[in-house]
Amino acid sequence: MPKKLAYLMGAIAITVFFLAPALYSQTDMTHVIEDAYPSKERPPSVFPHDEHTYEIAEEFDLDGMSDCYFCHHYDGPDQDHMDMSVGIPCSDCHPVDPVDPDVTALTMAYHELCKGCHIQEKAGPIACGECHVR
């Protein structure tokens, strides 16, 4: 019996282990979905969300949810990473056409975040059409 229990516990543990990331993943997200633009000049950017989360988790070995802060930053570069913008649309803080010149515009925010990292890491797309695939 204890043997059976052990198997069950093991199975649950394995399941939890593999399912855990799903709690904070976006398994079905393949493109950046952004409704803030009044009109779209280019197709939405390709963005397989989970490839990035795994990549970041492995690369930086950050703890749990604080990995998210890497992109989902909140209120400037807060080093404690206590607050995150997970679930908040980017355009809430980065309007398409900001009034305040210190606020990064939406397009630039995306470009700086994505392209900036790709350039730094020497990996990932950096030319226009590589993300905005037709």
Binding site: A127, C128, G129, E130, V133, R134
Partner: peptide, 13 residues
């Protein structure tokens, strides 16, 4: 060609 992403985009750009 790059705009329409005809042929190899990376090469074209």
């Amino acid at each position: 060609l790059a705009y329409y992403q005809i042929f190899n985009y990376q090469l074209m750009i």
